[in-house]
């Protein structure tokens, strides 16, 4: 737990082994989780299909809260996969943290700002693209200078701050959660048995809280995604 990551350079880009491994692991879990839930699709759902449909209904309701049915159907899948991915990524670090030789190998990939900002970047790009698609290039650009041209710098700063806050919010929550988890863990092994007994309930409580935070943050991220998109589609 903790420690630095393995990195390597390729074509002038730095790659982080920890992020790649945990990201790959999360994506495999997500895929096989959803793949397993969607076997034996029936008109009368049972078992996994019910769970899958419950998740779909949940994310659909998030999307539908922000936009009309026609527009929502375009983004419902993106909201769904984003929610499932972020939720599992947030929880992974609570269950599984693998380190080797003083270096992390597997943790929550959402505890890394680069990863969360990547998703934030994807979301903001999608929202701008949606603005152009639904309102046309002219309508999209006129949104930037509304209500008047003086607001242009403010609007531009808002776009940047949206990008940063969306990514850093989830990173901060998950990173802090894991950091504290690690600190409590270190405390547990600092002075032998007495500290383990003291630290165990604290660790359990904090883990439970982190599960809650992870779920909330995934929900908040998806909700803000739909808000940003709907603001580009419908205007402020």
């Amino acid at each position: 737990m903790g420690g630095d990551a393995y990195t390597f350079n390729l074509g002038g880009l730095t790659f982080n082994i920890t992020n790649m491994l945990s990201g790959l692991l999360i994506m495999l879990i997500v895929f096989f989780f959803l793949f397993g839930l969607s076997r034996h699709i029936q008109m009368k759902p049972k078992g996994g299909q019910n769970v899958m449909e419950w998740i779909i209904d949940f994310t659909n309701s998030i999307v539908r809260a922000q936009m009309s049915q026609e527009v929502a159907s375009v983004y419902s899948f993106f909201a769904f996969i984003l929610f499932v991915f972020l939720f599992i990524a947030n929880q992974l670090g609570l269950i599984l943290q693998v380190g080797w030789n003083g270096h992390e190998l597997i943790k929550s990939s959402t505890a890394d700002p680069i990863v969360t900002l990547t998703f934030s970047f994807v979301v903001l790009t999608l929202s701008h693209y949606s603005g152009v698609m639904f309102k046309g290039l002219k309508g999209y650009l006129s949104e930037l200078v509304s209500p008047n041209a003086l607001m242009l710098p403010v609007n531009l700063i808002e776009e940047c701050s949206n990008f940063l806050t969306l990514g850093l919010r989830i990173f901060g929550n998950i990173y802090a959660g894991e950091l504290l988890l690690g600190l409590v863990g270190k405390l547990a092994f600092s002075h032998g048995w007495p500290t383990i007994i003291v630290a165990l309930p604290i660790e359990m409580i904090w883990q439970g809280f982190s599960v809650f935070i992870g779920a909330i943050q995934a929900y908040v991220f998806v909700t803000l995604t739909t808000v940003y998109i709907s603001r580009k589609v419908y205007g402020d």
Binding site: T7, N9, L10, L13, T14, F15, N16, N19, M20, G23, L24, M27, V30, F31, L34, F35, L37, S38, I41, Q49, M52, E53, I56, F77, F80, I81, F85, S109, D112, I114, V115, L117, T118, F119, F121, V122
Partner: peptide, 28 residues
Amino acid sequence: LYMGDMLFYLISFLIMTILVWHFAWKPV
């Protein structure tokens, strides 16, 4: 900054998205 991770996540997320779309989302 590990810009490579960004690329890695974008591509792998896209692949996962397509797979999930095809195998889980669409049928359900």
